[in-house]
Amino acid sequence: MKLGGWIFMLISWGIIIGLFVYCMVRTLTSGNPPSGEDEEDQPGPRPEIRKDV
């Protein structure tokens, strides 16, 4: 592989891995609670229907 190939590969890998690690760290450390607790098998209207825009 030529020098240009190594540079492109390492920069591309660096950008993607860096962004992925940043996102995962932010995701796992953010204080938001789990999405929901009230799973229900039956369909039906949502409990928090919002007004239309």
Partner: peptide, 14 residues
């Protein structure tokens, strides 16, 4: 009746 929900943020991302 409530709807289904994701259990966790990581779950929906995965």
């Amino acid at each position: 009746m409530a709807r289904q929900r994701w259990n966790s943020k990581l779950g929906v991302i995965l």
